[in-house]
Design a protein around this nucleic acid. Structure first.
Lengths: 191, 191
DNA sequence: GGCTTTCATTAACTTTTGTAAAGAAAATTT
DNA sequence: AAATTTTCTTTACAAAAGTTAATGAAAGCC
C-alpha cells in the first residue's frame, strides 16, 4: 500500500522504519471512481494526494471551457498546490480521469508531521523544488517552442498518456485548440 | 546590509538573533556593475543571490537570440534555480540589468547552513513553494490569456519595470516579438 | 440493440502573430 | 560633440492559429 510512496521518497531522503510508521499513520487510503472531483474550483484544497494508481487532471475553467493545467500520473503527489499551500480558494479544479487509488493527507496533519518527523521538512522542500523546476521547464517550453514543437515534446515524453487522455485535454494543456492540434498532427504525419 | 534579507525572511519564519548572526556569517556582499554575467549558460550555478539593490535578468539563448525567462527585482532571491538546486549545467544565463548590490551564498555553504540552522530548511521550503506558485501563475497566464492580456497584466503589476527594462526583453518574456508588442501597445492606446 | 453524448477531423474564413527590412530616436562610447 | 550602438516603431507580406460549423466515428448509457 505504501511501497510506491516510500520508493518515491527514497530518491530524496532516507527515513528510518520508525519514521515510516509515523508517516503511514497520517495517510489514509481512498478509492475514487473515474470523473470524480477531488478539489472544486473556488473551494480550499484541504488535502494532498499521492497517486498509487490512476490519473488526475488539474484544470482551469475559463467561461464554460475547461483548460488543462497539468496531468498527474501514478506515483506523484498531486493537489491544487497554490490553494493547498496557502489554504486559499482554489482557482483550479482537480478531477480523476480514471478509477484511482490515492493516499490522502490533510493540510493540518502534514504540518503536524513536519514537527514529528523533521526530515519530512527536507522531503517537502525537495518536492517543492522539483515541482518548481518542472513548472519552469513547462514554462520555458511555452516561451521557447512553437505549439508544434511542444506537441512533439509531449508525445516523446508522455506518449502513453495519448491513449489514456482525450486529445482536447492535451490540446488545452499545450495552449492550443483541438482543431489546431489536429492540424499539427496531420502536418507531422507526412514527415 | 542584511536588513532587507531578514525583513523578507520574517514573513516566512522567525529567526533568533543567534541564528541571524550565523546566517549573516555565511553570506558575503558583492557589488556588481550593469551588464555583468553572474551565471553563464552551460556552467553550473554555484551561488544564490539575494538582491539588496539592482535588477537581474534570467534568460534562455535560442540560436543567437536572448529570451527572457524572468526578471528579478530588489529583495528577492535569484539564481538559475534548476542549475543551482541540482548542481547541473545551466540552460539559462543570469545578468545584471543595473548596477547591483548582492548578498551571495554558495551551494555548499547553504547546505551547511541547513544543518547549523534547521529553521533555514523551513525557510527554503517556503521560498521554493512560493517560487513554484509564482511559476504556476505565470504559466497559467500563458495557458489562459492572450498575449494582449498578458501584456496588460504585466503593465498593471510591474509597470515600474517598463522604465527600467528594454521592451524587447519584456516582449520575449511575454512570448511575443518586439514587433508584436509594439502592435499591441498601439492597439491599446486608442482604448 | 438503439440512443445519446463525446470526441476527432476537416473545411472555409478571419484574426493574429511572425519575419524581414528600414528609419527614427535614444543611449552609450570614444 | 561626434560616432556608434542599441532600442523602438512601422510597413508589407507570409505563416500559423482561432472560430464556426459540419461530418463521421467511438464510447457510454438506458
Amino acid at each position: 500500500m505504501f511501497a510506491a510512496l516510500f520508493n518515491y521518497c527514497s530518491q530524496l531522503v532516507s527515513f528510518t522504519m520508525e519514521e515510516q510508521q509515523i508517516i503511514e499513520s497520517y495517510f489514509s487510503v481512498r478509492q475514487v471512481p473515474k470523473k470524480f472531483t477531488l478539489i472544486q474550483n473556488g473551494k480550499i484544497a484541504r488535502e494532498l494526494y499521492f497517486i498509487n494508481k490512476g490519473l488526475l487532471r488539474l484544470y482551469y475553467t475559463k467561461d464554460t471551457e475547461d483548460i488543462t493545467a497539468f496531468i498527474f500520473r501514478e506515483h506523484l503527489f498531486a493537489s491544487s498546490y497554490d490553494s493547498f499551500l496557502r489554504q486559499t480558494p482554489s482557482i483550479q479544479g482537480l478531477d480523476t480521469l480514471e478509477d484511482s487509488e490515492l493516499l490522502v493527507i490533510t493540510y493540518d496533519d502534514l504540518n503536524t508531521l513536519y514537527k514529528k518527523v523533521p526530515r519530512m521538512e527536507t522531503l517537502a522542500r525537495k518536492i517543492a523544488e522539483q515541482r518548481f523546476i518542472n513548472a519552469q521547464l513547462i514554462l520555458s517550453s511555452y516561451i521557447l517552442d512553437s505549439p508544434e514543437e511542444r506537441w512533439k515534446k509531449f508525445e516523446a515524453s508522455n506518449g502513453d498518456l495519448l491513449l489514456r487522455v482525450p486529445h482536447h485535454m492535451i490540446a488545452s494543456f499545450l495552449g492550443i485548440t483541438p482543431v489546431s492540434l489536429s492540424r499539427i498532427r496531420k502536418r507531422l504525419q507526412g514527415s
